[in-house]
Design a protein around this nucleic acid. Structure first.
Lengths: 260, 260
DNA sequence: TGTAGGTATGAATCCGACT
DNA sequence: AAGTCGGATTCATACCTAC
């Protein structure tokens, strides 16, 4: 499979995550950073089978996003499927490499099970606080204004603590509001947030995102001077991603801000 | 058992949580708000058997706290024990009443299991962001700067949505720094944080805290014009709590700030 | 370019009506 | 019928438009 280079730092593959992951060689990426389908909307089979826009967008919303697939598993199948692709990712990651998974409050416990089931060492939890605008408020509720990054490593980092080459420590809670003009997918994340996350790999390092969506992980990697392998099932989002990456690569001035 | 009144809004009981909970009548409290022992300070049995000050305080820490008990269970026993006292709490709570449980990242999945195992409906997750001062940073790590409130309700609120008497919506992420002078227990929470949490019950409502520690939940309840039933096993912390409650009750000016 | 005011939005949730 | 569907609801913020 084609790998990213210094000249062409982002490679976008169109196809099924598990199928394409199996073709990647061992130990070729520094981190897996991704936002898998949560399968958390709806309790019944038909609820889950509904198009994602019906599940996650409120009635009367003008803005339209293309649908995405893979969001219709029940809880046991979801966990099983996550273990499959997470073990594959572990094989592809270097020893000591990182795994960062987005999840919502409802799927958080299943996600911490899945990352460990996939062979990673679970190391912690980082909330992403979207702010007070995030969600329709209901009386008697605490706002659901956070999503969560479940993170772990592929084994331990085997260097003496005194000359640990890793960066950080990084923030343990991100306050980043959602900006609509920066959102190209129903579940798109702010570029600013992803720019902070890709810093877990060193400059020039490689990030793998098997559920790339509109490609924010790849755009952030380019801006921060990292490389990325992206996998996305929906052709329409592969196109969106290629356009965004081309734009981010052209914006040479942004490279100036890249730091370790 | 003695119950809190308008004149004497906080009752402190000294003894074992399960034993005392069994003596409280059905449906007598509006919310359970507590910070149970996490049992997450070590992985091995011998780690867990160490005195708490060794587990949670770093070498050279000046401030000393009295030990606390109930923090030496393995993970299965901890879950089982949580289900026991959480079911008892559910019986004691009014229909539609709240349960708010503090936990750390490591015990979060077990806590969401436990609250549901205890018969509550799990409704969400609220991070408490302690800020950057929280912990000594390590390279290659995201800071562990948050604890979490796992919250649920005792069944649904059975009033029509249009005249829902409940307050809120409340913030879905609390940014409250730890103030040493406001910390009277190794795991003590800021009074400011607890003041926000006790607002889930209406003015004059009753909060139950079966692991009261230094009594911050009770102090916050008094300040916010709520009542509280506190249970604490260690006599030394019962004394600390009684002194704090007396002080908070005397500070009449603080009552003026109480809101619904 | 700056400020003010109107509008669109949300990885939801609820309840009642229906099959 | 330990089911399914659809409409109404909510408000802080970002964004857009007008002046």
């Amino acid at each position: 499979m084609e790998m990213p280079t210094a000249e062409n730092p982002v490679v976008v593959h169109n196809g099924d995550c598990l199928d394409l992951l199996r073709r990647l060689p061992d130990g070729c990426v520094d981190a897996v950073i991704t936002d898998p389908p949560y399968s958390s909307g709806g309790f019944t089979r038909s609820d889950k089978a509904a198009p994602v826009a019906e599940k996650y967008q409120q009635n009367g919303t003008e803005r339209q996003y293309a649908g995405f697939s893979g969001d219709n598993r029940d809880s046991r199948s979801w966990s099983y499927w996550c273990c499959l692709w997470l073990s594959e990712c572990q094989r592809i990651a270097k020893p000591g490499g990182y795994c960062l998974l987005f999840t919502d409050w409802r799927q958080l416990p299943a996600t911490t099970d899945a990352i460990q089931g996939g062979g990673w060492i679970w190391r912690g939890l980082v909330p992403w606080d979207k702010g007070l605008a995030a969600r329709a408020p209901h009386k008697g509720y605490f706002r659901h204004q956070c999503e969560y990054v479940v993170w772990g490593t592929n084994g331990a980092c085997d260097v003496p603590p005194n000359d640990d080459p890793r960066g950080g420590p990084w923030a343990g809670c991100f306050q980043v509001p959602v900006v609509q003009s920066d959102k190209h997918h129903l579940t798109g994340k702010p570029t600013e947030l992803m720019r902070q996350l890709v810093k877990v790999v060193p400059l020039g390092g490689v990030v793998l995102d098997p559920f790339a969506g509109s490609g924010t992980t790849g755009a952030a990697a380019v801006i921060e001077g990292r490389r990325a392998i992206l996998i996305e099932k929906e052709p329409v989002y592969v196109d969106v991603t290629r356009r965004r990456i081309a734009k981010a690569s052209g914006a040479g001035s942004l490279f100036a801000g890249a730091t370790n």
